[in-house]
Simulated assay, not measured.
Amino acid sequence: MTAAPRDVEQFYSTAEVVAKLRRLADALETDKPFRIQIAGERIRVPARARFSIEHERGDGEEEIEFQLKWELPDTDDEAESDDEADKPVV
């Protein structure tokens, strides 16, 4: 099943961003999947995701984006295990 297209931008407090980045860093260091909730949707980022940093400048402002990208599986091979589905997401 293919996920529906989505393009959202969600703003968080500094404390929330720090907590999310700390968990992301731990997942990257240990080569484990990362789970996050953004604008009400739970997302599982696989350990094989590629990480990039993007910088944009224009119209009197600058932007840095930290991006994780991965291909969606064609099959259910990478479906979450039952115990992972119950883990809390921050």
Rank of each mutant, 00 (worst) to 15 (best):
M1I: 10
T2K: 11
P5E: 11
P5T: 10
D7L: 08
D7A: 12
E9P: 00
T14R: 13
E16N: 14
E16D: 15
A19F: 05
K20W: 04
K20H: 05
R22A: 10
R22Q: 13
R23T: 01
L24C: 10
A25S: 12
D26R: 00
L28E: 01
L28T: 00
L28K: 00
E29T: 00
E29I: 00
D31H: 06
D31V: 05
P33D: 15
R35D: 11
I36G: 02
I38E: 02
A39V: 06
G40R: 02
R42S: 09
I43R: 03
I43E: 04
P46D: 07
R48A: 13
R48H: 13
A49M: 06
A49T: 07
R50L: 10
R50S: 08
R50T: 13
F51S: 04
F51C: 07
S52I: 09
S52A: 13
S52P: 02
E54S: 03
E54C: 02
E54D: 09
R57S: 03
R57F: 00
G60A: 08
G60S: 07
E61P: 00
E61H: 05
E62N: 02
E63F: 01
I64W: 03
I64Q: 04
I64C: 05
E65R: 04
F66C: 06
Q67E: 15
L68H: 07
K69F: 11
K69M: 11
W70G: 02
L72W: 12
L72V: 09
P73N: 13
P73T: 10
D76H: 04
D77W: 14
D77P: 04
E80F: 03
S81G: 13
S81Y: 10
S81Q: 08
D82R: 09
D82Y: 09
E84P: 02
E84M: 14
E84V: 14
A85K: 15
P88K: 08
V89F: 14
V90W: 07
V90N: 03
V90D: 09
